[in-house]
């Protein structure tokens, strides 16, 4: 019996192999930058250091972009510029023909990954040929296509709770060619939904590309 207890750590180790497997920083391919000009340097006193690099998202082997070519739906089903397929077509340039423009106000896009998956990161590019930040940005995942149950919020900078999902504490950020890579913390879900409520330049909503990094459930 005593020997049996000694084996427990070995069984436990075997069960957590997936959790302890080797992780490497997620590599995301970025399009070339479009914005030109160098910001004027300024001493910011005791403000936080600008342009701080976000920590890399660590992923195990076998993690790929599950969103590529997947079906996208939206609260604005008939965009005036572009179409929803552009969001998962793999092109991340910011010029005309690469982005979809959704209507004014709060709008969402939703990607159906086809099956529930273990998610590690969601990368989003809204529009990076102009310095702007998208407002009320919320990223959620769920196995429910209606997003009514088992919803996990991965990012929320809606600091006034205008969408009703709670006061967001995620930072606003400047759109760049590097987009935004949001850790998904191994959330398990089939659907990814991204909200925004216009941007600092105009009232419209744009998406160039959304990549969802994960792997099928074991």
């Amino acid at each position: 019996m005593k020997k049996l207890f000694l084996l427990i750590p070995f069984f436990a180790a075997a069960l957590t192999v997936r959790a302890d497997e080797a992780l490497t920083p997620l590599k995301v391919e970025f399009p070339p930058p479009v914005l030109t000009g160098t910001p004027v340097p300024a001493k910011l006193g005791n403000l936080e250091a600008p342009n701080t690099k976000l920590p890399p998202v660590m992923v195990p082997a076998g993690v790929t972009n599950l969103a590529k070519g997947k079906k996208v739906t939206s609260s604005d089903p008939a965009p005036v510029i572009g179409d929803l397929t552009l969001i998962t077509d793999g092109d991340k340039e910011s010029e005309e023909g690469y982005f979809v423009e959704l209507d004014r106000g709060r709008q969402w896009v939703q990607i159906d990954l086809g099956a529930s998956a273990e998610l590690y990161a969601i990368a989003v590019w809204h529009y990076h040929s102009q310095a702007r930040a998208y407002l009320g940005m919320i990223v959620q995942v769920s196995d429910d296509p209606e997003f009514k149950k088992d919803v996990k919020t991965l990012f929320n900078n809606d600091d006034t709770n205008s969408a009703g999902f709670g006061v967001g504490t995620s930072p606003s950020y400047l759109e760049k060619n590097t987009g935004r890579v949001i850790p998904a913390n191994k959330a398990v879900a089939r659907y990814v939904r991204l909200y925004s409520s216009g941007n600092t330049a105009n009232e419209l909503n744009h998406y160039i590309e959304v990549e969802v990094f994960g792997r099928p459930r074991p």
């Binding site: 914005l35 910001p39 004027v40 910011l44 403000l47 930040a133 407002l135 930072p171 600092t200 330049a201």
Partner: peptide, 29 residues
């Protein structure tokens, strides 16, 4: 600067983290 309760930074000068963004003009927040 420490004497002020609120600071508004022009994005042409700097982009501090943990601040709220507001649009001013194209390419300027």
């Amino acid at each position: 600067l420490a004497a002020y309760d609120l600071i508004l930074f022009d994005s042409r000068l700097e982009t501090p983290l943990s601040a709220t963004a507001f649009g001013l003009r194209p390419n300027v927040m």
